[in-house]
Design a protein around this nucleic acid. Structure first.
Lengths: 207, 207
DNA sequence: GTCTATATGACGATAGAC
DNA sequence: GTCTATCGTCATATAGAC
């Protein structure tokens, strides 16, 4: 990923190894959080996925909550990278649709952690994590801008509060309809994305 | 609820007490499953809520899974009772909207258990529970009938597969947008219901 | 820093007195 | 059938050797 590390002061081999190991841990954690919930994912799962001893995890992260918070920050980074990569001159509504499409694809690939559920002990930790909060605000601001833009153009319903639109878009990243349809086996992944995308933007009622 | 018990052969006081205790356990379990997930709810929670010893729970239900399955069946019964209480001559789409409205109100009151999540050990147990499966099929058939009816009338988008519509309606019973908006504190419960209902049926795009 | 081994605590489930 | 007390298991986290 990071092929342009030369400007950084050179890292010792030890530090590079440390960093690489930590990246591997985070990568496995992101994957596992996409497959199961925070509560059911265990540190043994992570250790086995990375291929190191469980105790070694605690040399990098002081608790399960801290590890998963770091993973969530990494996920947020990917979202920001995706948002930043969208063409400037794309209409606002198309950017919103592209975002939802991308979220659904991540969800189908089990790469996107479910949003922290209400009673998870992870939630409290995340709300105290400045990097997470800052990232979440940055993402929300960017999307919120597109929402108001699309509403000004009259393509997104201007009567809906932007916050409601934002949350409705966010919720697609953990939409259970995706797994229902997936388990049914009747539709391809591409079909599922299109169907959920359509019900999200066009609604169930006929037009 | 059941005021017409006279046709049943008379229950001994002991049996009545047994039944009453069991109803209380189920009632508390339904409430708790509305507040937290299956995995985070403990048998101690249930025992404390009912006001009995944990061991006593196991005289009524042989396992946590069996207890929660029975609770889910009870919830399904409430759904069926609600569906059956809807006026016969109400247009199909209005029945669907009434169902979603009711689901959202239950969710706001924390009375509706979240749908069994993907990796919960409850899921497997539920799929082996005939009463649950039968109830789920009955509910789905009833709603499916209204969906095709509304599609034939052209008020629900006829291009959407009925199964997609059904799942989209089901998913409102655990829509995270509700708790997001609730925690934001900007909207009343009634506002939240109307906003989610509108985005569900009318979509985000302007009409 | 990595490992093996273990401390600590939570929770589902059971034993046995009453 | 209800209780108190306890077992067995599993998961987080730590101790201590290397």
């Amino acid at each position: 990923m990071q092929t342009m590390q030369t400007p950084l002061p050179k890292l010792s081999f030890k530090e590079q190894m440390h960093q690489a190991r930590e990246d591997a841990i985070l990568q496995s954690t992101c994957q596992l959080l996409g497959e199961k919930a925070f509560d059911t994912m265990t540190m043994d799962d992570v250790a086995n996925a990375v291929g190191i001893a469980k105790a070694s995890l605690y040399k990098h992260f002081s608790s399960k909550e801290e590890l998963c918070s770091a993973a969530m920050v990494q996920i947020l980074g990917r979202v920001q990278a995706f948002l930043g990569g969208l063409s400037e001159d794309m209409p606002a509504q198309d950017k919103l649709r592209a975002l939802v499409r991308w979220s659904l694809e991540r969800l189908l690939a089990k790469e996107m952690p479910l949003l922290p559920s209400r009673n998870s002990s992870l939630r409290a930790q995340l709300m105290d994590n400045k990097a997470y909060i800052d990232g979440l605000i940055a993402v929300s601001d960017q999307i919120g801008q597109w929402i108001t833009e699309a509403q000004a153009q009259g393509v997104i319903n201007p009567e809906l509060p932007p916050l409601v639109v934002l949350y409705t878009l966010y919720a697609r990243a953990c939409d259970p309809v995706v797994s229902f349809l997936k388990e049914g086996g009747l539709y391809s992944d591409a079909d599922i994305v299109e169907l959920v995308l359509r019900t999200c933007f066009e609604g169930l009622a006929a037009r």
